[in-house]
């Protein structure tokens, strides 16, 4: 990429300063473009990899209604993956290149999907906690400075609020159920709470790329601000249905009107990012295997397209 001229730089910075969206044909610094490609492709990969832990329960859902909602939700996520790949493509990278980066381990996806969905209650916990955390982040990203990303977020947020209700409904139903079901719900809560909190990324004083992201208005609010918003909202929701937050240090601060949590295990967070989580290998192998198994279909579709039009 060429270095921006002075006039182009001025144009870009003035737009950012006026809170206007940067569009695909606008001049933009290489660093801005690279940051967005990394972030949007990671976001797309997360949507797609996230289909696996939830897909794990589609065939075993507890009712026809629960099955329909879960499958519709996973289908939404697949659609989100598609919009986001398309948004990233406006920056000059192809979906194939992004998939190659994922398979080579150069591109990441949200670490949360490296945890297993062991019981039906985990589907509740994912919808409620994981999608709940994702919404807080994505609502904030609706104001991000890159137009296609921002517009994708507006659409995605509309669907995500339904996802969170889907998860909360499962948890509420189980907490109103038998002793066994309540224990299963609490167990899922115990396993998903801390990983969900770590989805917002490391604490602000330890977040390596935040500086540029804030200046470029890609990121509008800090990790800790978003995490706190999620905690305040979720602690109350847990209380309503009788779930215990698995944190002995949790307390409400009367002065700040915020809940305060105990320390999180950031070593585990970094370990899982590096590949040492319970499902890292499984998720990637599944994705690569499916990609490989489908190659003959994609080749056939391309070849057939060259062979002319299908008769009506």
């Amino acid at each position: 990429m060429a270095v921006l001229t002075e006039a182009q730089t001025e144009f870009f910075e003035a737009k950012i300063a006026r809170d206007e969206k940067i569009e695909p044909r606008d001049p933009m610094p290489d660093g801005y473009r690279a940051h967005l490609i990394r972030q949007i492709s990671q976001h797309a990969h997360s949507e797609v990899i996230g289909m696996q832990p939830e897909g794990n329960w589609v065939t075993r859902a507890s009712s026809l209604r629960a099955k329909l909602i879960l499958l519709a939700k996973i289908q939404d996520e697949c659609g989100h993956g598609l919009y986001l790949y398309s948004a990233a493509e406006t920056l000059g990278i192809s979906r194939d290149e992004m998939l190659a980066q994922l398979h080579a381990g150069k591109a990441k996806y949200s670490s949360i999907f490296n945890y297993p969905t062991l019981t039906w209650a985990d589907i509740g916990a994912i919808g409620w906690l994981v999608d709940g955390a994702a919404i807080v982040n994505q609502v904030s990203l609706q104001r991000t400075s890159y137009g296609p990303y921002s517009r994708a977020m507006v659409r995605i947020c509309k669907e995500e609020s339904f996802h969170q209700r889907q998860g909360y409904e499962i948890m509420a139903q189980m907490m109103a159920g038998t002793r066994k079901q309540r224990a299963m719900a609490q167990d899922a809560m115990n396993r998903w709470w801390a990983p969900a909190l770590m989805m917002f990324g490391p604490p602000d004083n330890d977040s390596p790329r935040s500086h540029d992201a804030f200046n470029w208005k890609i990121k509008r609010e800090s990790n800790d601000t978003l995490r706190q918003r999620f905690i305040d909202k979720t602690v109350q929701q847990a209380e309503v249905i009788g779930l215990t937050i698995p944190d002995p240090d949790l307390k409400f601060n009367e002065a700040t009107k915020h809940y305060e949590i105990g320390p999180l295990n950031w070593k585990e967070f970094y370990d899982v990012i590096k590949g040492n989580g319970p499902c890292n290998r499984q998720r990637m192998e599944h994705h690569m295997q499916v990609h490989e198994d489908g190659a003959w279909v994609r080749e056939a579709a391309q070849k057939a397209a060259l062979n002319g039009q299908k008769p009506a």
Binding site: V48, M51, Q52, G55, V58, T59, L64, R65, K67, L68, L71, A72, I74, Q75, C78, G79, G81, L82, Y85, H286, V290, D293, G294, A295, V297, R298
Partner: peptide, 28 residues
Amino acid sequence: SEWCSRAPMLEEDLALANMALDHIGRAK
């Protein structure tokens, strides 16, 4: 629904889920 996350491309994952939803909805 068994195809979920297993289709040859994302567009087809959407289509298979759609057809699954139609049939499970009809069964309901």
